[in-house]
């Protein structure tokens, strides 16, 4: 089933995918065991003339075994998940000194990308506003200040394994590092009104030289 996953192009995406695969195999095995047992029981213990069911009220040992086993599995799974989650979402563990900082603002039904320009400060004359087009270099740490002007939107880049709601009145910091140049879609993943379907931006990941050229073109020195 997991071959349907879009290609991963972010540094933290592999960690997400590994967990995805781990859970996939754990649940697949559980499913096969449970459904297999169910079908076996249905066939083996079907009604047969003259055969009475056995009077079994339960088994404390078994209850303890499957309670303990399930508890252990979920805690182990949780232990492996905390670091991944913190790495992606917790601002205190973001890589410092980003190569690019962009403000992304959702509004019905576009993504506004604001670049701070060479002075690295927002709200100055050299800011650059682009509608639905985000340009970043490959293999570089990108920080996004994510916000919204009207309703809640959600910044989703499937190939980066990244999704974060954008809230009006709040700036949420997001980071990623893309590992492969290309043009990726940025759909909105939170219902935002009648134009929600089709609210679509693009993430352009450039090779460093192409990105430098793009910067040069936008802010000629």
């Amino acid at each position: 089933m997991l071959q349907w996953l879009p290609e991963n192009v972010s540094t933290f995406g592999q960690g997400v995918d590994n967990l995805f695969y781990a859970i996939y195999y754990i649940t697949l095995v559980t499913l096969i065991l449970v459904i297999g047992t169910l079908i076996t029981f249905l066939i083996k213990y079907r009604y047969q003339e003259g055969k009475k069911a056995d009077y079994i009220e339960g088994s404390t040992t078994l209850e303890i075994v499957w309670t303990a086993a399930t508890t252990v599995i979920v805690f182990v799974l949780a232990m492996f998940s905390y670091p991944q989650w913190n790495n992606i979402k917790s601002p205190t563990s973001f890589p410092e000194n980003p190569d690019v900082v962009v403000q992304v603002s959702g509004k019905q039904f576009n993504w506004d990308m604001t670049y701070p320009g060479p002075d690295n400060e927002f709200g100055t004359d050299d800011d650059l506003l682009l509608e639905n087009e985000l340009h970043v270099p490959v293999n570089a740490v990108v920080h996004i200040r994510l916000t919204a002007v009207d309703v809640i939107h959600s910044f989703f880049v499937p190939q980066l394994r990244l999704k974060q709601d954008a809230l009006p009145g709040r700036i949420i910091n997001v980071w990623f590092e893309a590992t492969k140049a290309g043009r990726y879609e940025i759909p909105c993943a939170e219902l935002c009104g009648f134009g929600h379907s089709g609210m679509l931006g693009y993430l352009n990941v450039h090779a460093q030289t192409d990105y430098d050229a793009w910067v040069q073109e936008r802010w000629p020195q």
Binding site: V34, Q48, D54, L62
Partner: peptide, 13 residues
């Protein structure tokens, strides 16, 4: 879930 399976175990379904 396991208890439902246990209920069917050695039953007369």
């Amino acid at each position: 879930t396991f208890n439902w399976l246990g209920t069917m175990f050695r039953g007369s379904i």
